[in-house]
């Protein structure tokens, strides 16, 4: 059996394992990320956060997904003045 056919077979079996649950796992991970984002953004959103001094450092990491996040959370417009994503 040629190497590429074997590779394709392996890829097929892996897809057979992962495919049906990909969406569920992705959603679970997104929920976790959302929670993390909420913690990091807490201070900016007006929730006193004793760890703000440290979590502020992580703020830039949340910006990439910020727009999708606030829309997912039911806020049409950006809730933060200094982040003008929409």
């Amino acid at each position: 059996m040629s190497g590429s056919r074997w590779q394709r077979f392996r890829a097929g079996v892996e897809e057979f394992y992962a495919g049906p649950y990909r969406a569920t796992l992705r959603r679970a991970r997104r929920d976790e990320d959302d929670l993390f984002r909420l913690v990091v953004l807490a201070e900016a959103l007006g929730v006193p956060d004793p760890a703000a001094y440290w979590s502020a450092e992580l703020l830039p990491a949340t910006y990439a997904e910020f727009h999708d996040w606030h829309r997912r959370m039911g806020m049409e417009r950006s809730p933060l003045d200094h982040v003008g994503c929409c």
Partner: peptide
């Protein structure tokens, strides 16, 4: 995630 073009044999297996 949900929308992924899949090989027909694998998709049949699912």
């Amino acid at each position: 995630v949900d929308f992924v073009p899949t090989n027909k044999f694998v998709l049949w297996g699912h």
